[in-house]
Design a protein around this nucleic acid. Sequence first.
DNA 1: CCGAGTTAGAGTCACAGTGACTTTAACATG
DNA 2: CATGTTAAAGTCACTGTGACTCTAACTCGG
Lengths: 239, 239
Amino acid sequence: MTAHAAAVSLAVSTVIFALRPHAETGRMTVWMPLVRRIREPFAGRWALPGGPLEPDEDLAESAARTLAETTLLTPQYLEQLYAFGNIDRSPGERVVSIVYWALVRSEEADVAVETENVRWFEADSVPELAFDHNLIVEYALWRLRNKLEYSSIAHAFLGETFTLSELREVHEAVLQKPLDPANFRRQIEGSGQVVPTEHLQTGGRHRPARLYRYNRAANDENNGPLGVRALPGRTQGAS
Amino acid sequence: MTAHAAAVSLAVSTVIFALRPHAETGRMTVWMPLVRRIREPFAGRWALPGGPLEPDEDLAESAARTLAETTLLTPQYLEQLYAFGNIDRSPGERVVSIVYWALVRSEEADVAVETENVRWFEADSVPELAFDHNLIVEYALWRLRNKLEYSSIAHAFLGETFTLSELREVHEAVLQKPLDPANFRRQIEGSGQVVPTEHLQTGGRHRPARLYRYNRAANDENNGPLGVRALPGRTQGAS
DNA sequence: CCGAGTTAGAGTCACAGTGACTTTAACATG
DNA sequence: CATGTTAAAGTCACTGTGACTCTAACTCGG
């Protein structure tokens, strides 16, 4: 445990997910912001936002910081994904990257900045990235789709309150398949992961839909000893 | 990503699980080997086996090496657990620990060495450990019990072939509850995660039991892009 | 050599959850 | 005010599961 300063650098990167309408079809799909590398190796290539771990910050803090610095976004959900540390993953030097994945609200992603060096890509068709970041993106997408089916993280893409149709749209966008509205309603309501409010959403040319709110208490139970929280500001991880 | 040598040390530790009979009851329970620290901080305390990451080895390699050096064991299963990196988890210096968890066969654990500085503990009642290792053990146990229910890792505790009763005994030991033999058989056989051999195991004072073998092909599908393998020697992780 | 004891392994039954589908409610729009 | 649209509730057949029963095939004690 008592290591002297080794020739191994430690970096923290983050895969950021948001839902945005597809270019042509207009349907919601999964997008992520990438940053252009300005130095070697892989100068000019797109890569995940991140940077070296500062000695005075926790891992999740570092992820949130670099995430905010490059994209000006604040995540609704932030969880550690994996530590990538193969010897040859960075040409020339040895870098171990601890990667986080984050979910941001769609409305926030809509007003996100796009600059010369920050651009949004559809998660399923990112270009060839720097380092092993294509593998990382693939793994993060797999985790997102996996976790959506047994956990309740979909609300992190939405606002404080939402209709069940909106929640279903999130599921459909992530899982890339249509879901039966009636069955979806039955499952979500039965799981207790959301709680109905007394407000309805009118305006559509149809019957008004009830607004629901995420039920934190019912979901905190199955998170294990590390207790991943779904709020910004509060960091999670080891104690 | 291009970090200069920071004041952050990087270590790799491993939580090793094996099944051994309980001291009094004789029933199988989950055990783990711990090593006694011989230097500060926490000198004298028990801790997870591990050490600093060498620049020329992958993360999983480092886990397997320190595991073998201290306990002389070779794991049947080795998977990354989590990266612990809170600022104050190690007094005085900043250490980020990438923790793996491993499963070893029961018969191998039976002949494992016990020295002054290496001792086996029951996983549910380890003493107060060094650093945040109690939290790490708790999380690893949670992952083990969680993953046993949706994946097929139980065979890693057993030999090449095994009866369904032996496999059920592993599940009962890990989950700490009895399972109905008939229902367990139905589920395991239906899942296709094991395949029957043509051999029977005689010798018990009852009807002979068929020996089964782990079905690698049927289980490799749902492991995600990282493809966690269940064999020693072969390392997994990022490419 | 036989009966008792034990576990292997197959089978039964009631019940809960799910996918596919139908029906009614309540809005906006033309 | 008729029409289109989605909300929300309800129906039905099917599947997997927990609890349980029954038969098979061995070892061991007498």
